[in-house]
Simulated assay, not measured.
Amino acid sequence: MPATLSEGYAPGCIGRIAALHASYYARASGFGVEFEAKVATELSRFCLRCVPGRDGLWLARETEVEGSIVIDASHVEAEGAHLRWFITSDALRGQGVGRRLLAQAMDFCDARGYRKVFLWTFEGLDAARHLYEGHGFRLVDQREGTTWGRRVNEQRFERRTA
Rank of each mutant, 00 (worst) to 15 (best):
T4L: 15
S6P: 06
E7K: 08
E7V: 13
G8T: 01
Y9N: 08
Y9Q: 15
G12K: 00
G12R: 01
C13R: 02
R16T: 05
I17F: 05
I17M: 11
A18Q: 09
A18I: 06
A18T: 14
H21S: 06
S23R: 08
Y25W: 15
A26H: 02
R27I: 11
R27H: 15
A28N: 08
S29M: 11
G30V: 09
G30C: 10
F31H: 06
F31M: 15
G32C: 03
V33N: 12
E34F: 14
F35Y: 15
F35V: 10
E36R: 14
K38L: 15
V39Y: 04
V39H: 04
A40L: 12
A40G: 06
E42L: 12
L43T: 02
L43Y: 02
R45F: 08
F46T: 09
C47V: 11
L48G: 11
L48Y: 02
R49P: 05
R49C: 07
V51A: 04
V51E: 10
D55T: 03
G56C: 08
G56I: 03
L59A: 09
T63N: 11
T63L: 07
E64C: 06
V65H: 03
V65T: 06
I69G: 14
I71K: 02
I71P: 03
A73H: 01
A73T: 00
S74Y: 00
V76S: 06
V76K: 06
E79G: 07
G80A: 04
H82C: 09
W85Y: 15
W85V: 07
I87V: 11
I87Y: 00
T88I: 01
T88V: 14
S89V: 04
D90Q: 10
L92Y: 02
L92N: 01
R93N: 07
G94A: 06
G96Y: 00
V97R: 03
R100Q: 13
L101I: 13
D107W: 09
D107T: 11
D107L: 11
D107G: 09
D110N: 12
A111L: 08
R112H: 14
Y114E: 03
R115W: 02
R115S: 10
F118R: 04
F122N: 01
E123W: 09
L125I: 15
L125M: 15
A127I: 11
Y132N: 01
E133A: 03
G134H: 08
H135V: 12
G136L: 12
F137V: 03
L139H: 11
V140H: 05
D141N: 13
G145P: 08
G145E: 07
T146R: 14
G149Q: 13
R150A: 09
R151G: 07
R151E: 15
V152W: 11
V152G: 05
N153H: 09
R156Q: 13
F157S: 05
E158C: 08
R160S: 10
T161G: 09
T161E: 10
